[in-house]
Design a protein around this nucleic acid. Sequence first.
DNA 1: ACCCCGATCGTA
DNA 2: ACGATCGGGGTT
Length: 154
Amino acid sequence: MAKDLIGKQIVFGDRRGIITETEAYIGTDDPACHAARGKTPRNSIMFGQAGFAYVYFIYGMYYCLNFITEKEGFPAAVLIRGVIDPETGKHYDGPGKLCNYFGITKEHNGINICNSAEFYVDDSAATFKIDRTPRIGIKAGTEKLWRFKAVTKK
DNA sequence: ACCCCGATCGTA
DNA sequence: ACGATCGGGGTT
């Protein structure tokens, strides 16, 4: 799912962003996953249905946007790490920066992006060559190649 | 109630 | 390489 989201377009109000970079966080056995130590108020959305937004506050000043994947009860999410504004071609690289661009905050945690007219992922997709590397900004779980990044247009 | 630290980012 | 900045969550 993390790989499939590359090239798709996030629509949030009047802003759009082509997804260029993602990371996967999968289940309670993934030490880098917020759900690794069980369900808490913060990560509870990860334990619900796929297709919901998981937004959390980090480092005292940033928000990060994820989309929930997998079946209900199995916590997994895709972190969105980079987008391009299709209007201007401007890159927003980094999960905190792209949330600032969209205006995404903790208020948007738990939104069902499958039935919202304001916040959804457009299925039309640009095709990219995709680099696969270890996830960054984490201390455990770096052996998995769960970071996906668009490199050049095919 | 306390304390450590984080799926970050800008500046040096 | 490091500081800013603060809520979450594990521990007491």
